[in-house]
């Protein structure tokens, strides 16, 4: 049992390491530096972290208002992240 626990801890640690290791490629993005709160970028990075991205045209502005608030609460998104995502979705639908 101890061995399994150690294996799982190592697995989680390896995911952490993979995440740290992959960052330099992303942080070099000029776009990210120029506009860290780009709605489109935040949409793919946060919403796409759990599920495939829905077509922005699938919902009206009013419906995105509701959906984004729902996900802000569920995924503990920051208020400014959710506002930027909402602005993007309203512009793209």
């Amino acid at each position: 049992m101890k061995r399994i626990q150690i294996t799982m801890v190592l697995l989680i640690a390896s995911i952490f390491t993979a995440g740290i290791h992959a960052e330099p490629a992303r942080s070099s993005s000029a776009d990210a530096k120029r506009n860290p709160l780009s709605g489109a970028k935040l949409w793919t990075e946060n919403c796409g972290n759990c599920h495939n991205l829905r077509n922005p045209a699938g919902y009206s502005d009013a419906q995105w208002d509701v959906a984004v608030l729902h996900m802000r609460i569920r995924a503990n998104l920051t208020a400014e992240e959710s506002r930027a995502i909402l602005d993007f979705l309203k512009a793209a639908n």
């Binding site: 952490f16 995440g19 992959a22 992303r26 970028k41 796409g48 972290n49």
Partner: peptide, 11 residues
């Protein structure tokens, strides 16, 4: 407590 240091990564 969920720590999201990088996009796409949470522990």
């Amino acid at each position: 407590i969920g720590f999201v240091p990088l996009p796409g990564f949470e522990v």
